[in-house]
């Protein structure tokens, strides 16, 4: 099959980017989308042009590196990672637009690569367990109901790709933050720090320039790990609890968080 591509090209973070058009890219329909970009890069190299830079590594949907906006959809049409998109998902002769993930908090670094370190800083602000209890207590002394464990795992499954942010009209990372908070706050080991964790992570989320959630639901529609928007509900509930906890703990006025 043949496709025509409009690909975002940008030399570096400061440069002004623009679409470049590549016509008649010939490719097997069973090739993956990234393999198609490999083929196009090969052609560019043969023509003495700079290859298109894009993030990729495992190419089996686990590492969370790939981050393409394909025809305005983060990771393309099928709610998987970009590397799991196949050319058979498109029509012969189709024109396809490829951009980096778009969000205020994710600056483009080159071509299709963005800086997703703001997500890390949300975790850095409190998304961890800091109690270091050594080998005790033995884990079976605090049973965890399998439903709770599974709910924690369903949140821990986040690969940090950032598609939720790119899909959100507000550029919000609430699905990501909600997943991180839900994973730890549901488990007994995350309990002692839950309020502090929730407050810090939400504050960092806002400071990084991510927008607020307005229940659009685009995030869960593109999440390759199928993380449900319920984690945002969980986050809001935890946040409310954390703020009330803070209010009760002091007599003065509520600080803006």
């Amino acid at each position: 099959m043949r496709v025509t591509l409009n690909v975002w090209r940008q030399a570096d973070a400061e440069a002004e980017g623009a679409f470049e058009r590549y016509e008649d890219v010939e490719i097997d329909e069973n090739a993956s989308f990234l393999e198609m970009l490999d083929v196009l890069n090969d052609r560019l190299l043969t023509d003495g042009k700079k290859p298109i830079a894009f993030d990729h590594d495992c190419r089996e949907g686990i590492c969370g590196s790939c981050s393409l906006l394909i025809d305005d959809m983060p990771h393309g049409p099928r709610q998987v990672t970009s590397c799991q998109i196949y050319m058979r998902d498109f029509e012969d002769g189709q024109e396809i637009t490829v951009e980096p993930f778009r969000a205020t908090a994710f600056p483009v670094m080159r071509d299709l690569m963005v800086d997703r370190s703001p997500l890390d800083r949300i975790v850095e602000s409190g998304g961890y367990v800091s109690v270091n209890a050594g080998p005790k207590p033995e884990p079976n002394s605090i049973p965890v109901h399998p439903e709770i464990q599974e709910a924690a795992m369903d949140a821990a499954i986040c690969i940090g790709c950032g598609a939720c942010v790119a899909a959100c009209p507000n550029g919000s990372a609430m699905l990501y933050t909600g997943a991180k908070v839900t994973h730890l706050n549901l488990l007994p080991q995350g309990e002692p720090e839950r309020f502090h964790r929730t407050r810090s992570m939400v504050r960092q989320h806002d400071d990084e320039g991510f927008g607020a959630c307005t229940n659009t639901g685009e995030c869960q529609q593109v999440c390759p790990q199928n993380i449900s928007i319920k984690v945002i509900g969980e986050l809001n509930r935890e946040y409310r609890g954390a703020m009330i906890h803070k209010l009760r703990g002091r007599s003065g006025p509520l600080e803006a968080q």
Binding site: Y128, V129, V131, A133, E138, P139, N140, H145, P146, Q149
Partner: peptide, 22 residues
């Protein structure tokens, strides 16, 4: 065994059976 317990304490959601045990 100690390493597994350490990981569990840090928040790795290891599989639990119906009785809530690892």
């Amino acid at each position: 065994p100690e390493e597994i317990i350490h990981l569990e304490h840090l928040g790795v959601p290891f599989h639990r059976d119906d009785a809530g045990r690892l």
